[in-house]
């Protein structure tokens, strides 16, 4: 599982598809940025599954039917049923919601909070050492462990999972932004702005933030992928969202004891989870290519 997002030096994916003749603007975009196209497309599909879950041939993912437990995949239950007789297909489709919400909300929160801390740290030396020591402290605790501990301490809910994972991811973004701020401060245009008497908030807002945005967005996609994986692991360990909630991690946790005899219970959610994380990573790599040409595919 990803403990942290790729650092700055991380390589971009090469273009997976061979160069081809431009055919219109959309096709051209797809060919120039296959990562964004494939990743974005897959995420869009997942988002549609999440939103349209009730209309995709699903039943109530929480409805128990102990008389029909552990049915193998069949026409009645496409992905089979679990130990309590719940329909796995329905639970997997509804599970998309949990993963996507956790991934996106954690990415957003960690980016915003991390950016705020990074900016403050980079600009106010007095606070810098204190903030960065705290960030180091959090960073020094493996984020899975930190999240498990935070979850053991709170009531299992999607909200708490988001908070727990966000706390473990903020330091990454904060350090990234702080590093960029320190670099930007030495740039002539910033020095010029300071010399011209630009007030600090305006300086940050007009000159610093826009220049840190692109890397933060790229970083956010990795945070998103990491968050989805940690969420699944938390559920898998029994420290995540309540088992009654259909989530991919919960389904795998339920199927775990039986994976020798009924491997399908683990297989379907594992497949969906892997594809979604893959999509987010592809998107992230694609965005990196597009937003930061210096790190492009090296042609």
């Amino acid at each position: 599982m990803s403990e942290f997002a790729l650092p700055e030096e991380a390589a971009a994916l090469p273009e997976i598809l061979p160069p081809a003749v431009r055919r219109g603007r959309v096709a051209g975009f797809v060919l120039r940025h296959p990562g964004i196209a494939i990743g974005g497309g897959l995420i869009a599909v997942m988002a549609v599954l999440a939103i349209a879950a009730p209309w995709l041939g699903t039943v109530d993912p929480q409805s128990l039917d102990p008389a029909n437990m552990l049915i193998v995949p069949s026409a009645g239950h496409w992905f089979g049923t679990d130990m309590l007789g719940r329909d796995i297909y329905s639970r997997v489709i509804y599970g998309t919601r949990v993963s996507l919400v956790v991934g996106f909300v954690v990415a957003l929160l960690a980016s915003v909070i991390g950016m705020a801390i990074g900016l403050v740290s980079g600009f106010f030396r007095a606070l810098d050492s204190v903030l960065m020591r705290i960030m180091d402290g959090i960073l020094a605790i493996p984020s899975i462990l930190l999240a498990i501990a935070l979850m053991a301490l709170t009531q299992g809910s999607v909200g708490n999972v988001i908070v727990a994972i966000t706390i473990s991811q903020v330091p990454q973004v904060a350090r990234l932004v702080r590093g960029m701020v320190l670099g930007l401060r030495e740039q002539p245009f910033v020095e010029a702005a300071i010399a011209a008497g630009t007030r600090t908030p305006r300086l940050i807002w007009r000159h610093i933030v826009p220049n840190t945005l692109a890397p933060v967005i790229v970083q956010a996609t990795y945070v998103c992928a990491v968050a989805m994986i940690i969420e699944a692991i938390l559920d898998f360990i029994g420290a995540g969202v309540p088992p009654i909630v259909p989530s991919w991690g919960n389904i795998m946790a339920e199927g775990r004891a039986l994976w020798q005899v009924k491997p399908f219970i683990v297989f379907f959610p594992a497949f969906f989870l892997s594809v979604t994380v893959l999509a987010v990573n592809l998107l992230g790599d694609g965005l990196r290519d597009m937003l930061d040409p210096r790190l492009g595919s090296g042609k």
């Binding site: 994916l13 994380v277 042609k299």
Partner: peptide, 25 residues
């Protein structure tokens, strides 16, 4: 830029995306 490069990098992004317990199982 060759297919070898692509294959290796596809493997790399896959390895990064599949959760450890899925690989384990």
């Amino acid at each position: 830029g060759t297919w070898i490069d692509r294959a290796i990098m596809i493997f790399a992004v896959l390895g990064f995306s599949v959760p450890v317990f899925v690989v384990a199982y």
